[in-house]
């Protein structure tokens, strides 16, 4: 899923400083799963903004709504009724959400309430980790299902680098060295020879480097 972190209350308050009536829109997709932009978090943010504005004697009117998916125009269209009556709309979806909203309602002002961080999952309760960078050409089968593009700080295709120590990345003691994991797995399973070759330079044109990407599935186009 797409993982995000809530922006700080201070940052969101600064965004809506002059606004007197706002809408906070949640999303039941990834941000609900990673506990940052679902119904519950929308209500918490609304209460926090309300309290802060009351305390500073600048009361604000806040409506809230959470839709199925902000990355889907079918659901975005459901917001039609109220949009346009707000000074601002704060989206708690990933970066896709406020863009779909902005495109659907060009006259409404939108703010992102979260920082979209990565494609990943929860490794334990309350901790999410990156697993994919969306490079557009998956090669994880060559590395026993472990992605060095997303999980090596240098995206090395021939690791581990000289900074790998005790299974940890040189960049952070909190980060596992993915190459340590790849090498150990290959060694344990007697497939080290898989790594003893020079891999061709990666074609990054399928990644962000090739420009904004589109996926076209002819069979679904009416």
């Amino acid at each position: 899923m797409i993982v995000a972190d809530r922006k700080s209350l201070e940052e969101i308050l600064a965004m809506v400083r002059e606004k007197r009536k706002i809408l906070i829109v949640g999303c039941r997709g990834c941000v609900t799963v990673c506990n940052v932009g679902g119904e519950k978090e929308v209500e918490i943010l609304a209460a926090s903004i309300n309290l802060a504005r009351k305390t500073s004697d600048q009361p604000i009117e806040i409506d809230t709504v959470t839709i199925e998916r902000q990355c889907d125009n079918e659901y975005v269209a459901l917001l039609k009724e109220g949009i346009g009556t707000y000074d601002a709309v704060v989206s708690l979806a990933c970066g896709v959400g406020p863009q779909f909203l902005s495109e659907a309602y060009p006259n409404q002002l939108f703010f992102p309430g979260v920082n979209t961080t990565f494609f990943g999952g929860a490794v334990s309760h309350g901790i999410w980790e990156e697993r994919c960078q969306g490079c557009g050409t998956c090669i994880i089968h060559n590395f026993d299902g472990l992605c060095p593009i997303a999980r090596c700080a240098k995206s090395l295709l021939h690791g581990p680098c000289g900074g790998s120590s005790d299974g940890l990345c040189e960049v952070s003691k909190e980060t596992l060295c993915i190459w340590d994991m790849i090498v150990k797995k290959k060694m344990e399973q007697g497939r080290l020879t898989d790594l003893l070759k020079v891999i061709e330079a990666k074609d990054w044109s399928s990644a962000r480097d090739g420009g904004p990407r589109r996926s076209i599935r002819e069979e679904l186009i009416p």
């Binding site: 295709l157 021939h158 891999i199």
Partner: peptide
């Protein structure tokens, strides 16, 4: 950072 290619490449 860039890391278009690595040291091996």
């Amino acid at each position: 950072n860039v890391h278009d290619i690595d040291s091996m490449q």
